[in-house]
Design a protein around this nucleic acid. Structure first.
Lengths: 154, 154
DNA sequence: CCTAAAGTGTAGCCTCGACTACATTTCCGG
DNA sequence: CCGGAAATGTAGTCGAGGCTACACTTTAGG
């Protein structure tokens, strides 16, 4: 039936491990998180630009994220498709209710992650850098734990 | 020259923020980390399969990661291109020296991340789940901080 | 007021990572 | 010893997220 691999033919153990659908699910979730990560970053950045500068222009967004303006515009189109932002040609980008909510949640989460990293002794610059990647993979349960931990520290 | 956006025309602040190439770099790094994440997962899993079962077959890898076997095979091809693994048709997958090294590093990092999450009070299941996504974004500096923190705790 | 520069948008191309569908190889069991 | 099931490999497609190149608006400033 199934071909044996070289290793198996060499006479190695070939112990039968009990199924791991769990691990598959974990990887799947991590992959999914990845797909929403970009939208979260955009929402957060747009909210920030609107708050501090009053306007969110594709070029500014592109510069802040380090991508070309064309890429930014395409992603903004995706934000619109997902109902997170509105934008009319040559008139800047704005967030919908849903977009604002997401941005607020993402911002709070970012701060919490950075604070926790700092609390366990991670240097400031590394904390900021790593948080950028980490934040998108932190579940609510973990977030709550972070919050509790920080409260206990102080 | 530059068109003003709707918000700016509405008379909002438009404060001039001093450049942020820093943020762009951070996002860029986070994106790069993402591209190596998959290879790290594969290397770690292959090492695990070889250690516990003596063989690493594309189908097993696919099942453990929750993807189709075609996807697994394509990624294995990429591992070969990157010099991390070797594999001959119908003969199983093996790691090169570089692949083994990577796998060992990834495995140690994974454990450290999980341990730290547990140490700050994250429930076991959430820690395992989140670590799967987080681990790929943890820098060496952060890793060292984690290690120090855990040592101090005990 | 009218032009040119900056910003905006569009089109086309690339790679990755995932999929389905189909072809090929291996080797177990009758 | 050979037929078929399971594993393996190949081809083609898709969307996301990048890019460059080119076309079109807008508006500051002479």
């Amino acid at each position: 039936m199934p071909p044996r691999t070289e290793a198996a033919r060499r006479g190695d153990s070939t112990v039968e491990l009990p199924a791991e659908p769990t691990q598959a699910q974990r990887f799947g979730k991590a992959r999914t998180a990845q797909s929403t990560a970009l939208l979260e970053d955009y929402a957060e950045l747009i909210a920030d630009l609107l708050a501090t500068g009053g306007e969110a222009r594709p070029t500014d967004i592109a510069r802040r994220l380090g991508v070309s303006h064309a890429t930014a515009i395409k992603t903004i189109a995706r934000l619109k498709r997902e109902g997170l932002a509105t934008a009319r040609p040559y008139r800047g980008v704005f967030l919908t209710e849903a977009g604002e909510t997401l941005a607020a949640r993402v911002k709070a989460r970012h701060r919490l992650v950075v604070d926790l990293l700092r609390a366990v002794g991670v240097p400031a610059e590394a904390a900021e850098q790593d948080a950028e990647g980490i934040e998108h993979h932190v579940s609510d349960a973990t977030l709550q734990a972070f919050s509790r931990f920080l409260k206990a520290q102080r």
